[in-house]
């Protein structure tokens, strides 16, 4: 099968490449672009470790062909750092509240939490748990992940208020 020309905006940067249409977006990100934040966990759209943001939607990049994402804007966990390269708010809160142990699920967790808080800046704990239901963690028991996301919401809202 012939390769196709694909063009994406990944973390604010225009990228181009040749890929077979059947290539999954996660493989294109990791192997062609060397963006290795999104992880390959189950590769069957269950675990959420490969979650990226595509045009404002949280998507499991193991279940999207790179051809489908052609022309899209993609954000990975690497794109959620501050402009000066320091940890972004959600990343910092995961660190502070120990929202991870082994860290394998963390890029997917943080990328999903980013979209959740964009859509619902003041979630209840229940809404966080419902909104994070597509991401599995086998270490933490989720308690500290939820805590980190609730703390992120507070921090982001405080920053927004301070800026106004």
């Amino acid at each position: 099968m012939s390769k196709m020309h694909v063009k994406l905006n990944v973390n604010g940067r225009e990228v181009e490449g040749l890929a077979e249409p059947r290539m999954l977006l996660i493989h294109f990100l990791r192997e062609n672009l060397r963006i290795t934040g999104p992880h390959i966990g189950c590769e069957t759209s269950h675990c959420g470790a490969c979650t990226v943001d595509i045009d404002g939607k949280s998507v499991k990049s193991c279940t999207v062909f790179v051809a489908q994402a052609n022309g899209a804007e993609v954000t990975t966990v690497e794109g959620l750092v501050n402009d000066d390269g320091s940890l972004g708010v959600i990343q910092e809160m995961f660190r502070e509240h120990h929202g991870l142990q082994c860290g394998f699920c963390t890029p997917g967790m943080i990328t999903r939490a980013h979209r959740l808080l964009q859509e619902n800046p003041t979630p209840t704990e229940e809404e966080v748990r419902f909104g994070m239901a597509g991401n599995l963690c086998r270490c933490t028991g989720y308690q500290n992940i939820v805590k980190a996301i609730m703390a992120s919401a507070d921090m982001l809202n405080a920053q927004k208020e301070a800026a106004e």
Binding site: K60, G131, G134
Partner: peptide, 9 residues
């Protein structure tokens, strides 16, 4: 149906 990520697609 499914989970949040799947429901976006």
């Amino acid at each position: 149906i499914a989970d949040p990520q799947v429901r976006y697609m």
